[in-house]
């Protein structure tokens, strides 16, 4: 493989990795606070893409505005899901919320099937994002540069919220000790809502960019990226935001490079991620950046 080809693959990997990483952050944040795997998270990714689609086709909004509204609306969906499906189960055994999450996921996907129909929809893409540019011998889409840049900016913004603001402090505190955090005067439910909102906004951003990269959307488009991102979160160490992003990047790299170097294996592309999951769970269940799981005293 030539160097130029390799660099092209590298950009593809970076794009895919960023998209996985953005979804993975939502999984990892919710898990860090509630010890809940929010299976509906992949569906928020799908909703984000559909919201832009309807924003552009139905209400004829300018694309940029549609994107911003879609992200906000998806954040709201995440908050509503928590309010309806998870909050009433806060004191219930953890498995109840998990089953509720699976239920919500099926509900959204099938509601999507009814409302959006199962027919894949073509997505509008602004020309400046998809006109191939050539740098020397490398031919890439502007998307391949913009997606990682936006992902990076979003993650920096998120880290700023988590590490430099008061609600972020409360989030980090809740993840270790909910009761003590309440004793400090923090309304835990509000902080949890904020967590769902932020995670969902990032998932929607990922879904919207995914739809630009692979410009057909359908109600089940979130299922596989959702699984993959979950694997990325486990790989990075569930509970760690930086870990989720690194896990996403690694997974993107592995998938793209495996297919690039061994084209014969391209049919097994999705299998790599799951094999990786099994290997991590066997070898290092806490992931790359994960803390040791300690029993609460």
């Amino acid at each position: 493989m030539s160097l130029d080809m390799f660099i092209q693959h590298l950009f593809n990997a970076l794009t895919l990795g960023s998209l996985y990483g953005l979804i993975a952050i939502g999984y990892t944040m919710v898990y860090g606070i509630l010890r809940l795997i929010n299976f509906a998270h992949g569906d928020i990714f799908m909703l984000g893409a559909y919201f832009v689609f309807f924003g552009v086709t139905l209400t004829k909004l300018p694309w940029g505005i549609a994107v911003i509204l879609a992200v906000a609306l998806s954040a709201l969906c995440g908050i509503v899901i928590d309010r309806i499906a998870y909050r009433p189960l806060r004191d219930a055994p953890r498995i109840s919320a998990l089953i509720s999450a699976i239920g919500v996921s099926f509900f959204i996907e099938n509601l999507g099937l009814v409302v959006f129909t199962g027919l894949p929809k073509p997505v509008y893409r602004p020309d400046w994002l998809v006109e191939i540019i050539t740098l020397g011998n490398i031919r890439i889409l502007p998307l391949a540069l913009i997606v990682p840049a936006i992902a990076f900016a979003l993650v920096m913004g998120l880290l700023w919220i988590v590490y430099k603001t008061k609600p972020g402090l409360a989030m980090r505190s809740i993840s270790k000790d909910i009761e003590t955090t309440r004793l400090m005067g923090v309304s835990v439910d509000k902080i949890i809502a904020l967590t769902f909102g932020l995670g969902s906004a990032l998932a929607a951003a990922s879904g919207i960019m995914w739809a630009l990269r692979y410009p057909q959307i359908h109600p089940f488009m979130g299922v596989f990226p959702g699984f993959k991102a979950f694997i990325a979160a486990v790989l990075g160490g569930i509970g760690s935001i930086q870990g989720a992003m690194i896990g996403g990047m690694l997974l993107g790299l592995i998938e793209i490079m495996a297919v690039a170097f061994f084209p014969a294996l391209s049919g097994y592309r999705d299998a790599f991620a799951f094999i990786l999951l099994i290997v991590i769970l066997l070898m290092k269940p806490t992931g790359l950046m994960g803390e040791k799981l300690e029993e609460k005293v």
Binding site: K166, L169, R172, K176, E291
Partner: peptide, 17 residues
């Protein structure tokens, strides 16, 4: 029940939340 992963300052600021 101090928060072991937060700094002393962050623990105190949490008190003033």
């Amino acid at each position: 029940r101090i928060l072991p992963h937060l700094t002393v300052m962050e623990n105190l600021m949490l008190g003033a939340y």
